[in-house]
Design a protein around this nucleic acid. Structure first.
Length: 318
DNA sequence: AAGTCGGGGTA
DNA sequence: TACCCAGACTT
């Protein structure tokens, strides 16, 4: 809380204000900062559509903004409405997803488009419950679409917001590895009551985490709530949860093998002989397991040889 | 609650 | 190198 606030805003109630009250100083200052520093991202443009917002949110699940921007433009030019993606070839969808990573997201996004067509007449629904029922849409994405596409009130709690609140409110360097119920309740209590303001708070708090209150080297000297920050007051202590944060390995993992196989298939014009697939990884057992996994995930299809002596090959699904 | 799932840019 | 990125889903 803002006990040491050197710039009191007497016309504003404290944070965690009762329903109907205007935003407190923490929220108010972040909103003012956002008015000046908001990035000009394409899915925030005045002519944005709910579909464009949904596409951006799925692409942004674990992929940085700078890599999503060009992919988003190409995607929206090719499949401007859910029905367009629903009717597309899955192979084309996976190729357009390119190297955004986690290609199962591309499958889920297409399945999501098909669900939007089947259940909602081709229009992206506007309630959190309806959104949550769609493939690839979890708690964060549903809340984000409500706020950014429809201007509704929701609790948007992504990695940025979690970090901002962990520092400013809890005085901790980083949030816990997995969100807690208490953390979510605390975030909810900060969300302004007015829907339009709540939606702006969602964007503003995320933006602060992305541009100033960053994970690695926070730019505290530029922070609009520096004087209100509990982590700053506590002397910026180290991460309490560092011991339980295990880094995700990469070299030699199934994820690397799967990535190589998918890259090969994306670039291929036609079926890829099994011999060529096996050439991307030296350990036959691991490769075989990964190919089976990709098939099980619907990312790959095995094509039998034309004759008894013809080799098996692999293609992206239709 | 813990594992799985890509890929690349950065300190 | 290791870490981080507008998470979702399964077990």
């Amino acid at each position: 809380m803002l006990l040491d606030d050197p710039h009191p805003a007497p016309d504003r109630a404290p944070d965690r204000a009762p329903a109907g009250a205007p935003p407190g100083p923490l929220v108010g200052r972040v909103l003012d900062w956002f008015d000046v520093h908001a990035r000009d991202l394409p899915w925030r443009a005045p002519d944005r559509t709910p579909w464009g917002v949904l596409v951006s949110e799925v692409m942004l699940q674990q992929t940085p903004v700078v890599r999503v921007v060009p992919a988003w433009h190409a995607w929206m030019a090719r499949w401007p409405e859910p029905v367009d993606l629903a009717d597309a070839s899955t192979a084309d969808v996976l190729r357009a997803w390119d190297r955004l990573g986690y290609p199962r997201r591309a499958l889920r996004l297409q399945a999501c488009a098909q669900a939007v067509v089947d259940r909602h007449g081709g229009r992206v629904p506007g309630t959190e419950d309806e959104l949550l029922a769609l493939p690839g849409v979890g708690a964060y994405t549903a809340a984000a679409v409500v706020a950014f596409a429809f201007g509704g009130r929701s609790v948007v709690l992504d990695t940025n917001v979690r970090r901002v609140l962990a520092r400013a409110v809890d005085g901790e360097a980083l949030p816990s590895p997995t969100p807690t119920v208490a953390e979510r309740a605390r975030a909810e209590a900060l969300v302004p009551q007015d829907p339009a303001t709540a939606a702006r708070w969602a964007a503003a708090s995320m933006e602060l985490g992305a541009l100033v209150c960053t994970a690695r080297s926070p730019r505290c000297e530029e922070c609009p709530v520096l004087e209100a920050c509990a982590w700053q007051r506590a002397g910026r202590p180290d991460d309490r949860h560092a011991a339980r944060r295990r880094s995700q390995p990469w070299a030699g993992t199934d994820r690397q093998v799967r990535g190589r196989v998918m890259a090969l298939l994306r670039e291929a014009l036609g079926p890829v002989p099994s011999e060529a697939v096996e050439a991307v990884w030296p350990q036959a057992g691991q490769l075989s397991r990964c190919v089976d996994g990709l098939i099980a995930d619907g990312l790959l299809v095995r094509v039998p040889g034309a004759g008894p002596d013809e080799p098996v090959s692999y293609v992206l699904p239709d």
